[in-house]
């Protein structure tokens, strides 16, 4: 049985549409317009034990809503989901003791007390026996390099240090499934790297199942073999990171180093000119035309060097997101008026 099984999972909610101005505010006292937001639409997904899966998608795509559904914070409008055999929104303690949710912008530690006190509370809430608690805590603090910060009030820790403490709190009860919602948001590159390395090591060692949402491609490429693209509440892609380029990009980027004295003006007829920095030029060429364009280029110019590459992953993903956004603009919006 798969660790996570999602079938036709949907979540919609109604959002009050406040018009601008005092008159609209007064009218809103008696009559309000609501718009239906379909945050997640009929998502099907299966995740096996030990997988590290990234959720990619633009803001408002439905990534966090999916994590909220899987962690039981909210209930779905329709569809089913099972995590380790449990229905998340039934919130059984047996399930809650086996997973953890870390949200990059939410603090679960006691603000005015040292993190050690929050950890002690977690030990009791999750009923971790004393010896195992101490071993896990020692291991996690050593791996994350925060042993000397355990007795410092949380409010006096830096953002990166706080996130490390949040991760420790989430992992103290050794969860089998971990949901990470943008764990490196707002962190500097050093802290981002430290958390990436830690997650990679911990996941490989413990073989736990992790679902990660992140806007940082470095997080995703460093950690996840499998990527799921969600946009407009729908699942658009489920596969490897490199497969995104093959699937969504119909272009290659050709970089030419022309010999001295060559004219760049005519290059545009071979493809879309992306950049000219003599003696270098970059062209975007349709994937199926690459062989014929290369032959034409090499016969028309004296070329010192040439490279044919896939476009950067970030560019492809941005293109996918913008395509989905365009489709979503006038997508079956439902409105209603309630008193």
């Amino acid at each position: 049985m798969a660790t996570i099984e999602i079938e036709k999972l949907s979540k919609s909610y109604w959002v009050y549409q406040k018009q601008e101005g005092l008159r609209a505010s007064l009218r809103g006292l008696f009559r309000r317009e609501y718009r239906e937001v379909r945050a997640v639409r009929e998502v099907d997904l299966t995740v096996e034990q030990g997988e590290f899966v990234a959720f990619l998608g633009p803001n408002g795509a439905g990534k966090t809503t999916t994590l909220k559904l899987l962690s039981g914070v909210i209930s779905p409008s329709s569809g089913t989901a099972r995590v380790m055999g449990h229905v998340p929104w039934q919130r059984e303690n047996a399930y809650r003791r086996r997973f953890a949710l870390v949200m990059g912008q939410k603090n679960q530690l006691w603000w005015d007390l040292p993190a050690q006190e929050s950890f002690r509370l977690h030990q009791q809430i999750y009923r971790v026996d004393g010896q195992r608690f101490q071993q896990t805590l020692d291991e996690l603090t050593r791996l994350l390099g925060v042993t000397n910060l355990l007795h410092q009030p949380v409010r006096e820790l830096s953002l990166g240090e706080r996130m490390k403490m949040e991760l420790i709190a989430a992992l103290l009860h050794s969860p089998d499934v971990l949901f990470l919602d943008e764990p490196t948001i707002g962190l500097d590159v050093v802290a981002q790297h430290a958390i990436q390395q830690f997650l990679k090591y911990y996941q490989q060692k413990r073989r736990i199942t992790i679902l990660l949402t992140s806007h940082y491609m470095k997080d995703v490429s460093a950690l996840c073999k499998r990527v799921v693209i969600i946009a407009d509440g729908r699942l658009h892609y489920d596969g490897s990171l490199s497969g995104i380029v093959d699937r969504f990009s119909g272009h290659k980027v050709v970089t030419l180093h022309l010999a001295e004295g060559q004219a760049f003006e005519q290059l545009a007829r071979f493809g879309t000119l992306l950049e000219i920095e003599p003696p270098k030029a970059k062209l975007r060429v349709a994937r199926r035309q690459v062989p014929s364009v290369m032959a034409a280029l090499l016969s028309a110019y004296t070329v010192d060097d040439v490279a044919v590459e896939d476009p950067p992953l970030e560019d492809v993903i941005a293109e996918v997101f913008s395509r989905v956004d365009d489709v979503a603009v006038d997508h079956d919006v439902r409105q209603a008026v309630f008193p």
Partner: peptide
């Protein structure tokens, strides 16, 4: 603020 989430995901 959404802080109430912690009571929904933790066994308390």
């Amino acid at each position: 603020s959404g802080e109430i989430k912690k009571y929904l995901i933790q066994p308390i």
